[in-house]
Design a protein around this nucleic acid. Structure first.
Lengths: 239, 239
DNA sequence: TATTGAAATATGATATATCAAATGACATAA
DNA sequence: TTATGTCATTTGATATATCATATTTCAATA
């Protein structure tokens, strides 16, 4: 949860000297963060059941923060609630996955267009590093790790656009598709499509060519989506 | 909250005969809905404080559902939480408002493109009706009512696109900007920009020209945003 | 063996209790 | 009058209690 900073008449001198008291994230926030990370990292497979009580026991908190965190994820569409009001991670069908990708395809190009003129050299170097790391993960057949790095690559670009609302929306898109993506990570096997597309993205950023960067990320997204959609629509068995 | 329907081996015959038992929305859902409607209708002015306890007293429920509903809105960015953890409705500054409009500008054209081939004649007639109602409200100087109708016009177009995820994102965009929009409704005074643009949108839909519809809605959005942004950036006093 | 059904258990939804932090009221001192 | 300190009240965060539903277990029965 993002707290707004306020305080009208704070003395800047005192503030500098003593620093600021921070009350730290609430238990709900902490549970939420852990759940979120777990969803992105594939701790739960798509469709797996979750109970607030077990979560609260596992994390050593009471029902309330566990439940609140779960509800928050439900609200973002990262968790499902059944007719009987039980919770589970989402398992996107082909249509739903395509919708997520359509939205990413609408938003990430805008983000990268805004971000392109703002990147520092260090940040560009970091993008290159990330991409090489991803290549390495793929060659080691650590596909889930490769996906993590892919998400870091994309999200750090979105960060640079400095559009907090857009960023939070893109976050929820990743979160929603996370478990499904992870389940299908085998389908990325030996594919370096992402790697080549990322190189194009980086090249465009280096030339400060925002339109080219937007086009490159669109290609990356549509080609990446095509792989997943092929699996989802074909209903192929896992690996 | 959207419940997933499931149930593997239900007998369709019995189900048809007796109908289905529905458990109705939870108290949390009901409070959430009321809050949401209130925000869109300008019950609270931007920046106004809210307490979970007062809300629970007012609505005759316990703290838990009131609090959960508030947290849900906070999560969607429709309510703020201060450093001191008190709740208030959002009051967008110019930059934030522009970000909302940038996102609407990215998403609503996509929605209308998808929707254009799907509209029935009745639905188009309804759009025309809504637009005329809006005109009437403006001429009666009922600007807040006009804004309500404007939102109904846009959201019913988005509905037709049948992209539930996109629709929910667009919803949160409206919700976030709602109080600010309502506060500035005076700035729409005697302006019929929206009315004319809506007519262009409708005409494009009637011709089943998706691209033209998208262009028309983009124009509607950018011109509408310009009015608000002029007020917000000029920091002009109310009315 | 397959089905049923009752009791035990688990679960989500909601209410209530508790506590520390924030706020407000008010009296007193400067 | 204005600033300051004290105390009562309010508030959000969290824990716990309660209740109606679901789910599971398992023995009795067909």
């Amino acid at each position: 949860m993002v707290l707004q900073t306020d305080n009208p008449k704070a003395d800047p001198a005192t503030k500098d000297l003593l620093g600021v008291v921070d009350r730290g994230p609430s238990l709900t926030d902490q549970v939420y963060e852990k759940l979120r990370r777990g969803l992105l990292m594939g701790v739960w497979s798509p469709g797996e059941k979750l109970t607030a009580r077990k979560l609260s026991r596992d994390l050593g908190v009471s029902l309330t923060p566990a439940r609140e965190a779960i509800m928050r994820l439900v609200n973002e569409g990262a968790l499902d609630v059944s007719e009987k009001r039980t919770f589970s991670t989402v398992d996107l069908n082909c249509e739903q996955y395509k919708e997520v990708m359509r939205l990413r395809g609408a938003l990430e190009p805008i983000a990268i267009e805004l971000a392109t003129p703002l990147f520092s050299e260090e940040e560009i170097t970091r993008l290159i590093d990330l991409n090489e790391q991803m290549k390495a993960m793929i060659s080691e057949e650590r596909y889930n790790d490769a996906l993590q790095i892919d998400s870091e690559f994309h999200l750090s670009i979105c960060d640079r656009a400095e559009q907090p609302l857009m960023r939070s929306i893109i976050d929820t898109l990743w979160l929603r598709a996370g478990p499904t993506r992870n389940r299908l990570s085998y389908s990325y096997r030996k594919r370096l499509i992402g790697y080549e597309n990322h190189k194009r993205i980086i090249a465009a950023i280096q030339l400060r060519d925002a339109a080219a960067a937007a086009a490159a990320i669109e290609r990356d997204l549509s080609e990446g989506a095509a792989v997943i959609v092929a699996v989802l629509s074909g209903d192929q068995p896992d690996s």
